[in-house]
Design a protein around this nucleic acid. Structure first.
Length: 845
DNA sequence: GCAAGGTC
């Protein structure tokens, strides 16, 4: 029997589609990567009985990156990233082993049906899948077609079955347009990011960001926030005056002035004086108009994100996580969609009836059936977000329930009637001046029944009157008011702007917003308002000054337009790519040449690196004090040599007893993660310039292979780490009296010999004479920290003794361990110093 | 240490 492999974009979809196509009778097993499942059943395909294997990927299989030295942040001139730097596709998530998984499943298959999402990205993933599986599949028989593409727009029985009956083929042009987008984003984004980061980080000490990123989506997103900030800053409050009239007949009534306001006090006073000549207000007209508030369109992702942010106080990233969970648990339909129109075959009535227990859907049901939803936009992706089954608060959890509740109410609202109300307006004249008073009365609540927050507020009823009636004028006065500045952009408004300008997708909008927060460009204030930081403001103002294109929202849409031409087959992939890269390469060079313009703005907000920080340790070159800059990324700066030296992050740095590195005379600093944690000395020069061939950038003395320096791994290394493959436990001579050794690769810390007066590696140790735990008044002992019987109780981490070769030889854990530590030390690991390791091995075995 | 796009 021949086999048909079918691949969806995500595990949940593979399951749903398999269930539909097999009519619920498929068998399921886990794939080798643990993330994807394979659903198998038999059926017919191109006129034969076949075995179907339905599985999925997890989004993109591959992602694009630079290779070799171009991958490393500081290795090359960022300008080279525009053309010279070669790129490669590598597995998007190596942990998932997706290529291997697909190949194992594709082996021996005769046909493949691609069920990836029906958008450009999905089309691109089709070819990623094909690249992986085609070599493993059986050869086709003659000219027989073996590759098929299913096109579907919803996960309903009819849609999926229709798609299966009308299989097409994958669209190479659409896939290519995505390839082009990936390459453009990578080259442009990384070039600008690297240049900016390097330039400003080397100049300013208190930049509160370890990475100054740039991207065609994140930068315009930040631009929107700063634009609003600028409006607030340049806002000048203006005084204005309003004439207020209070009248009464049976009850008092406050009227609105027809001129609304004037900006001149004297003019306002003049109107007051004129109005005051009359004792009575005359009713000129009474109008009543029936008005309607429209029911909402069906819910798509961005609208859900907007409401979640503004009404539920939930950020977009968080909202999507919750929505994703509700979806995989079957409570709501797929939460990433642009569509606001229900498909023709959508079971509105059934969906509504599911909610009968929680909500009262009767109001939405008319005698002849359901109230028709408004006509929305069909983006051809997934149906609008709707509830899929009834749920209760207890099973969903707080935020899950709040989001589900909203989605459900929104759905019911879309199939409910509009809200109808009566607007009454009474026009008055008081002498020469016109005033009005208006009020709304509800006729029928319609959809606001389920969305009460949009309801017509109950107002005090207007007095019943008609044309020609008169009211007594109780008071006429001039009120002084001031115009108010706009407020900071709310997250919800930002989402609207991004959507309007095509910045990001429904899936990536939350990511971009998150990005500009994490990079410290904006902060989220109360009410989920986004306030740009100094850094964010300076960046955007700098782009405006040098090349506004870099921050304008049009940057993305212009590129997208070109990409669409590729997708439609109207433009050549290479030509579009080259052309666009050329433009941005020029923009990049212009930006680099003009960076002084942005720098002028930086100077105002940030302090030069030479003026920042406190003197800490001496430079090995000029022997003057270097300054320690604590702001992230913390570093040392020698103002005399004008050099900056990186340091290990996420810990405290202090001077290490004015000891010097024997290689370069830089004073050592001590990095500490916390009082009971790890600490090790670091040579600021060696840290960035590895002194030996077997060392890499970013290593402290605890990884240094110097043969004789008293701080090196060679002098202080004790034994192989008990947890990780490659680490060595290194004695920390600063840790007394709570002596410890710490792995130089992972987080393992071994406490030992507490209270010991002095501990030295392989030489001797002293206990304070009066409190020695050693027997017979002994105060000194030398031995192996792991297996010496005298030391046994003084070493805290039990793993340590159990994994020591002597104990393993005893058989207690033989064959049961994780297979680590069995390898003789020093062998096959060039990173470890041979002499020291050889000595240790000889000692242990 | 970089982009944006999928999804886990």
């Amino acid at each position: 029997m021949r086999t048909v492999l079918m691949v969806a974009e995500k595990p949940s979809l593979a399951q749903s589609i398999a269930k539909i196509l097999s009519k619920g009778s498929c068998s399921t097993r886990k794939g080798l990567n643990g993330a994807c499942s394979v659903h198998e059943y038999t059926g017919s395909f191109v006129g034969q009985n076949v075995r179907f294997k339905m599985t999925s990927v997890c989004g993109h299989v591959m992602s694009l990156d630079f290779i070799g030295k171009y991958f490393v942040f500081n290795k090359v001139d960022p300008a080279e990233l525009f053309s010279k730097a070669p790129t490669e596709k590598k597995e998007a998530n190596p942990k998932l082993n997706m290529v291997k998984f697909l190949q194992v499943e594709a082996k021996g298959c005769d046909y493949v049906v691609l069920w990836l999402d029906c958008d450009k990205e999905g089309e691109n993933i089709c070819f990623e899948v094909l690249d992986a599986i085609q070599p493993m599949m059986n050869k086709s028989y003659g000219n027989e077609r073996t590759i098929y593409r299913a096109k579907f727009s919803s996960i309903t029985d009819t849609d999926i079955c229709n798609a299966m009956n009308q299989l097409g083929e994958p669209n190479k042009n659409e896939a290519l347009s995505v390839d082009a987008r990936q390459e453009l984003d990578l080259r442009i984004g990384c070039a600008f990011t690297r240049f900016q980061t390097k330039y400003f980080q080397g100049k300013y000490g208190n930049l509160d960001s370890s990475l100054i990123s740039f991207g065609p989506c994140q930068t315009p997103t930040l631009g929107f926030c700063v634009e609003r900030h600028d409006k607030i800053q340049s806002f000048k409050a203006e005084a204005y005056w309003v004439v207020q009239a209070k009248v009464s007949k049976d009850s008092p009534l406050t009227l609105d002035w027809d001129r609304v306001r004037v900006f001149d006090r004297d003019v306002g006073q003049m109107f007051v004086n004129m109005a005051k000549t009359a004792k009575e207000a005359k009713v000129d007209s009474v109008t009543k108009k029936e008005k309607a508030k429209q029911r909402p369109l069906a819910l798509n992702t961005v609208e859900m994100l907007r409401v979640a942010s503004s009404a539920l106080g939930m950020g977009p990233q968080h909202t999507m996580q919750i929505a994703e969970r509700l979806y995989t648990q079957g409570y709501i339909s797929y939460p990433r969609t642009e569509t606001t129109h229900y498909p023709e075959n959508f079971d509105l009535k059934g969906t509504l009836k599911q909610q009968a227990n929680t909500f009262n859907p009767d109001k939405a049901l008319k005698k002849d059936g359901i109230n028709r939803p408004r006509k929305g936009a069909d983006a051809g992706d997934h149906p609008p977000i709707t509830p899929m089954r009834a749920a209760s608060e207890s099973e969903l959890g707080s935020d899950g329930w709040r989001l589900y509740d909203y989605i459900t109410r929104h759905f019911i609202a879309t199939v409910s009637p509009d809200c109808k109300y009566l607007q009454t307006t009474i026009s008055f004249s008081i002498a020469t001046e016109g005033f009005t008073c208006s009020g709304k009365t509800l006729i029928s609540a319609g959809y606001t029944e389920v969305m009460p927050w949009q309801g017509i507020p109950q107002e005090e009823a207007l007095p019943v009157c008609e044309r020609g009636d008169t009211f007594t004028v109780d008071e006429i006065k001039l009120l002084e008011k001031q115009t108010n500045p706009p407020d900071y952009l709310t997250e919800s408004e930002l989402i609207t702007l991004m959507e309007k300008h095509g910045i990001g997708t429904d899936a990536s909008i939350p990511v971009h917003i998150n990005n500009i927060c994490q990079r410290n460009y904006v902060t989220v204030e109360s009410g989920r308002k986004l306030k740009p930081t100094n850094l964010g403001i300076v960046l955007v103002h700098g782009y405006y000054k040098i090349d506004a294109d870099l921050v304008l929202p049009t940057i993305r849409s212009a590129v997208e337009k070109q990409l669409t031409l590729i997708a439609l087959g109207k433009a050549n992939f290479q030509q579009v790519l080259q052309h666009t890269l050329d433009i941005f390469k020029r923009k990049f060079h212009y930006f680099v040449d003009s960076i002084a313009g942005m720098d002028e703005l930086m100077e105002v907000s940030f302090s030069p690196i030479a003026d920042t920080g406190k003197p800490l340790s001496r430079c090995g070159k000029c022997h003057r004090f270097m300054k320690y800059i604590q702001a992230k990324p913390s570093r040392l700066h020698c103002s005399h040599c004008d050099e900056t030296y990186s340091l290990p992050q996420n810990g405290a740095i202090k001077l290490y007893k004015e000891l010097k590195c024997p290689l370069d005379e830089f004073e050592l600093v001590l990095w500490t993660s916390g009082s009971r944690g790890k600490s090790y000395p670091v040579c600021p020069y060696c840290f960035s310039n590895p002194p030996f061939r077997d060392m890499k950038k970013g290593m402290g003395c605890n990884e240094c292979t110097h043969p004789s320096c008293q701080h090196s791994l060679n002098s202080l290394g004790i034994g192989q780490c008990v947890e990780c493959e490659t680490g060595v436990l290194v004695f920390d001579p600063t840790s007394g009296p709570k002596w410890r050794m710490a792995c130089n690769k992972c987080n393992v810390v071994v406490h030992f010999f507490e209270q010991a007066h002095k501990v030295q590696v392989s030489q001797d140790m002293d206990f304070n004479k009066t409190r020695s735990p050693l027997t017979d008044g002994e105060t000194q002992h030398t031995g192996c920290a792991f297996c010496d019987p005298v030391f046994q109780d003084l070493v805290e981490l039990k793993y340590a003794t159990m994994r020591h070769p002597m104990h393993r030889a005893g058989g207690a854990r033989r064959g049961r361990g994780r297979g680590r530590g069995r390898r003789p030390m020093g062998k096959g690991n060039p990173k470890k110093p041979k002499d020291k390791m050889a000595a240790l091995a000889a000692y242990f075995v």
